[in-house]
Design a protein around this nucleic acid. Structure first.
Lengths: 355, 355
DNA sequence: CAGCGTTACACAAACCTTTGTGTACCTTCT
DNA sequence: AGAAGGTACACAAAGGTTTGTGTAACGCTG
């Protein structure tokens, strides 16, 4: 283990064991003892392995990349890593990448087209083998350009056109919320739909509207408001809704952080949750269960989306055909829609998933 | 711009312009026209530049790295990217790195020594030029080993021993909280100190205790409880505090998310904020101002910590001597310690920084 | 016109791997 | 004994870049 900063090379090990670098390479790259025997005697194998281990040899990735023309590097672009949801998805990506022997570069685009383009160029210049976008715009125009340049990629979190993607089934998630709100007797639902260019908010909104319509509840356009998926965005959007009469009896914020902002706006107006207004979020963030008023929300498999996104990309790189993947969400009912007493009578404990 | 997947090489440009790759390299690597003239005629320079641009040439980083023995790669290890604070710091790191032409790898250690060690090995095998640790344990044992292997690094967020670090002046931050609590008449303060191995919580706690002691307020050991810096950890710690009598009249959660958990625990017990218990967080997370009860907290320059951390590392790589850096925090007073009426009478608006 | 200094390049080596091909030696068989 | 085949290697090239050194051609000076 006596390694110093200058890394060991095949040449050093070769000199030490009295063979050539090529033999060392073949021995070290053989998966099993048996396959190594194709290239060297049992005794040589042992000596080479020992020398490599004693130097803590690891192949120089730049030399390997140069020779094999493969970098084992993946580029990831997200709107913002500060966002819990994207951070969690990225954790899944990185975890899977590490397992598969890949490394990832991740950067924010802040949903700014110019930053996104610049970041993409930087990643291409770093010779990534594939990319994962968490910041897809629904129109998919930019992505079309990337595809035409022959770069393989998959989308996570948000989908666009028919590009390979791994997302939560947001339409279904929206439906679960709509059905739940109907089941607790709410008939006037306002929806915080998020950014108008993100499939997440659009699909969740559409799903809720569909479920409500089927139950005979109409959601007029003025009940749908767009804004950022964060606490401040949620507060602002909620204020716009609460400034007009009549007040809705439920608000579906298609994101937990936006829902927290809504909570603030409701408190400012002395409106109680859930008695005056029922509140539902989305994603089942770590915070949701611990808020002063625990938040009813939709659990989405964020970590899994990241993992599967990376695996899909690897399949793609192997030349496989892939289909967009939509993972099923679960509704988690808590006190922001069902008060503790009611919850007790229906047997929901307010912390675990249900339905 | 007619680029296809196979990237252009110096050789291609050389063939096209009728010179050798070495000339192309020197021309393209010259910062100015003037310095390029050292190597080629004005006309050649123009032709080479044009050819390079038309192919969208970018040097192959693996080949450059192999030749120059520099990777322009930095490794970053954080406890968890899901954590807003660390994600923000990492954003600062990445932003500065990109500006300086470096790229970063980032991974979670989850504060698990084995994961940390594995992640470090992986980064070393990727030939990073330096590392940034956001997950330093206060004892600094592991870091000592890294230093002995000759790898340069800087710490961010948490400090340890005398290793180069960029942190918030957490002791001062704690003092600000202690002084504030005294100024609003609180005399029995409980502190959520976070992990016992993280300098952040330790310093913040110590700072608060020092300020309180100077004002004649003693904080007995049973008022200090450790736990995770997240909502669930905060709730659990708060419950331990609130289960014993007498109740404290203030809680300082050395982290905003822990403070949110405390809010939940307080509500469960029908205790009001700030009348029964004043609550203070730390970091001035985006959420703090938007919570149902806006949270008094300490603003720490997280993004800046990341930026300066990277710059310090670059200095270190240049062979400079560096001193640990502690950036000053600011107290932000909101309704969780001062009710709106009181706040109005003292002229604090509850959103901006003060003191 | 010999000699010298510039200019504008070319040449070649090195960085570390991987991998196709060549080969000396040994064993075994006929 | 000679051929055939296997074993255990060595040799060399290539991948794209950077950089030290070599050099032909030219202009100028004395």
């Amino acid at each position: 283990m006596g390694r110093r900063t200058p890394h060991a090379t095949l040449q050093m090990i070769a000199d030490e064991t009295g063979v050539t670098p090529s033999t060392v390479s073949r021995v070290l790259n053989s998966a099993s003892d048996a396959s190594a025997r194709r290239w060297a005697s049992a005794e040589t194998i042992t000596r080479v392995r020992a020398a490599a281990a004693s130097h803590g040899y690891t192949p120089n990735p730049q030399a390997v990349g140069l020779r094999t023309r493969r970098s084992r590097l993946i580029g990831v672009i997200v709107p913002r890593l500060q966002d819990y949801v994207l951070a969690t998805i990225y954790e899944g990506i990185d975890e899977a990448a590490t397992e598969k022997g890949f490394a990832t570069f991740v950067t924010n685009s802040l949903d700014d087209p110019r930053k996104r383009a610049r970041a993409t160029e930087t990643l291409l210049s770093r010779r990534v083998e594939g990319m994962i976008f968490g910041d897809a715009q629904f129109d998919g125009e930019f992505l079309q350009g990337v595809a035409e340049r022959g770069m393989k990629f998959v989308l996570v979190s948000r989908r666009a056109r028919d590009f390979p993607s791994v997302t939560c089934d947001d339409h279904l998630g929206g439906r679960l919320v709509g059905e739940h709100l109907v089941s607790i007797g709410r008939r006037d639902v306002a929806i915080l739909a998020g950014e108008p260019y993100a499939s997440t908010g659009l699909d969740r909104t559409r799903g809720a509207i569909d479920a409500l319509r089927e139950a005979g509840v109409d959601v007029p356009p003025h009940r749908i408001v767009h804004g950022h998926f964060d606490a401040q965005g949620g507060r602002e959007a909620a204020e716009r809704i609460l400034d007009s009469r009549p007040l809705p009896d439920a608000i579906f914020a298609a994101n937990d952080f936006a829902a927290i902002g809504v909570m603030g706006a409701l408190r400012d107006r002395k409106l109680s949750i859930p008695d005056d207004v029922a509140l539902v979020g989305y994603n089942d963030t770590a915070l949701a269960a611990e808020l002063p008023t625990p938040l009813t929300t939709v659990r989405s498999p964020m970590h899994e989306i990241g993992r599967l996104g990376l695996e899909m990309l690897l399949d793609l790189l192997q030349g496989a055909e892939v289909e967009p993947l939509r993972l099923p969400p679960t509704l988690v009912v808590r006190e922001s829609t069902v008060s503790p007493e009611a919850s007790r009578s229906t047997g929901t404990d307010g912390s675990g998933p249900s339905v």
